[in-house]
């Protein structure tokens, strides 16, 4: 987890506006090392995505999307659990981090969850999470 944390800190540095693809790539490679990789990686990513610093959160969303495209089934099954989906939902909810997160971050989180409903139709929990957000009026069509 230490190495994952170091790559992620560098990849989400809020003082840098450009994407650091080298660090993002290293982080994704590190996710696949060891059985705990996906679990730790998602825990670290959730924390960064919840950051009140817009740039840090947006960088973290880019890292997340790169991982979804590059990491395997173990990462996908872990991100499709309520444990991680709840962390994303907290960014959208005014009862949680929604009061600090910017509209830009919130709309990207919504896009990410929506895109997963399309790419991973077999993941029932993703569909449930999205339906709940719609029912609560947090996601508008």
């Amino acid at each position: 987890p230490g190495q994952l944390q170091r790559w992620l800190n560098e990849a989400t540095d809020p003082s840098v506006s450009e994407e650091n693809w080298e660090c993002i790539q290293r982080f994704c490679e590190q996710v696949n090392v060891g059985t705990e990789g996906p679990l730790f990686a998602l825990r670290l990513l959730a924390h960064k995505i919840q950051s009140p610093q817009e740039r840090e959160a947006l960088h973290a969303l880019t890292v997340l999307e790169t991982c979804v495209n590059n990491c395997g089934d173990r990462f996908h099954s872990e991100m499709a659990k309520f444990r991680f989906l709840n962390e994303l939902i907290k960014v959208l909810s005014p009862k949680y981090y929604g009061i600090w997160s910017s509209e830009k971050v919130k709309s990207r989180v919504t896009e990410v969850i929506f895109s997963w409903t399309v790419w991973f139709p077999q993941e029932v929990k993703i569909q449930d999470a999205y339906q709940m957000l719609k029912k609560q009026g947090i996601v508008k069509e």
Partner: peptide, 15 residues
């Protein structure tokens, strides 16, 4: 040998 991999999950957050 048993893995430490945690397969458990939470419930969907009620907001």
């Amino acid at each position: 040998t048993a893995s430490f991999h945690d397969d458990s999950d939470e419930d969907l957050l009620n907001i």
